[in-house]
Design a protein around this nucleic acid. Structure first.
Lengths: 242, 242
DNA sequence: ACCTGAACACCGTTCAAGT
DNA sequence: ACCTGAACACCGTTCAAGT
């Protein structure tokens, strides 16, 4: 084990070191803790956006010095990784019972997407480095159980759960910078398409009006249905071969 | 039109203003230009990562003052948006002819994914705000043509192309921080799973070894096949209803 | 008319000095 | 033993002053 080079936040090595260290961490009776710092970071990020999340701001919010923060974290990056795992935990909710597997997965995908849309400040910080944190692993454990229960192998279940996570998060992230939150955006997008060079962009120019009306929702529903159909095809028993 | 509030980089309004302004921009005979700055930014980002991309570094690289950069861009954010659209252009290649639609789309998805994996420094900066840039729209124009040609409506073609883009980019982004580039990562991930609380994470603990071996590639292939199957199902003519 | 040195108002991080 | 004021080495951005 090489302790000289610093371990990048979010890697397996890093999460491992954290869980192993947690046991012999001295009990502190002060209020300040990593969890408190992370939750404060989340609330600042959520309510005021990325620019507001500074060490100075956190220290002010927690009524301590900036230097004190570094007794619980080794860097801002590390704090973000921990905070995002907690955010994932906040976004995962138990689905209603008795829906059947397909509608259950559908519900979960929509539910998490709605959470992300409601907290745009967090979205840009989800980078996959929180995948191995306790809350994210909890979500994975749950998904694995679901997919194994309907007949997928462990390996298939993992790939499937990952693909869903990727698509739900990716869909929100990819549209965040650009989507129709601003009501003018649609009209302006139409003008943008209309004004393109018709030689180079014939389809975009010819269908400017219709294309400007397609939102990220439609893309999301298409991709989600595709993934669900793929699972359905896999668990449908095939007829015996020749 | 409200000119007082600054337009956020990457929105339709912003791309529109850029194209409209381009015409009456004075011809300059100096070498410095937005394109040159953007390309320099890309090469710095690609070879040395996000931290190296500073205005000071760019100015040094281009042998000009920092202030000169601001004659061509209004902010670093804006520069990043333009640069990323150019990067997308570099990552898109014409597929070999005569593959049939499914293998063509498959080829494109793999090709773009390989590009991203080969240029990890760029990946974190793809945020969707480059969607409306000339290179990205060129990719969209091409994809629309493909999907319309096999029978999808304009609207379906757009949602489909977007879902592919989301999934390919999202899959790389979501695994970038964490994937098996480091050969130790797999072993450490296994140890991480093994050391979890078996009450809370029974499946992860029981399948630690197998799960640690599933990489992002498997997830990618699953999702890609699912999307392709979904297209296939849509273009297969249904029998007339009752 | 064009360019830029030098400054401004910030960052994340560290550590000697306090209690 | 614990905490922190003040500094350090950076940022992105601006503008008065140069040519």
């Amino acid at each position: 084990m090489d302790d000289t080079t610093p371990v990048r936040a979010g890697t397996a090595a890093w999460w491992l070191a954290r869980t192993e260290k947690a046991d012999d961490r001295p009990r502190r009776r002060r209020m300040l803790s990593l969890d408190l710092i992370a939750d404060t970071a989340l609330s600042v990020l959520d309510s005021e956006g990325a620019d507001a999340l500074t060490m100075r701001r956190l220290a002010h919010e927690l009524r301590c010095s900036q230097a004190s923060l570094y007794r619980h974290i080794t860097s801002r990056d590390e704090l973000v990784v921990v905070a995002m795992d907690r955010a994932v935990g906040q976004g995962l909710h138990a689905p209603p019972e008795g829906l059947g597997w397909r509608r259950t997965v559908e519900w979960q995908a929509h539910s998490f997407r709605d959470f992300l849309l409601a907290h745009p400040g967090l979205v840009a910080f989800i980078r996959g480095t929180e995948r191995l944190g306790p809350s994210s692993l909890s979500g994975m454990e749950h998904s694995l159980g679901q997919f194994i229960a309907i007949g997928l192998s462990v390996r298939e279940a993992y790939a499937t759960a990952s693909a869903f996570a990727t698509f739900v998060v990716g869909s929100v992230q990819f549209n965040m910078g650009v989507d129709t939150a601003n009501p003018d955006e649609q009209r302006l997008r139409r003008r943008l398409y209309e004004g393109l060079d018709p030689q180079r962009y014939p389809i975009l120019v010819a269908n400017a009006e219709e294309l400007s009306r397609v939102g990220s929702r439609e893309e999301f529903e298409f991709g989600l249905a595709a993934l669900l159909d793929a699972i359905e095809a896999r668990i449908t028993p095939r007829r015996p071969g020749p």
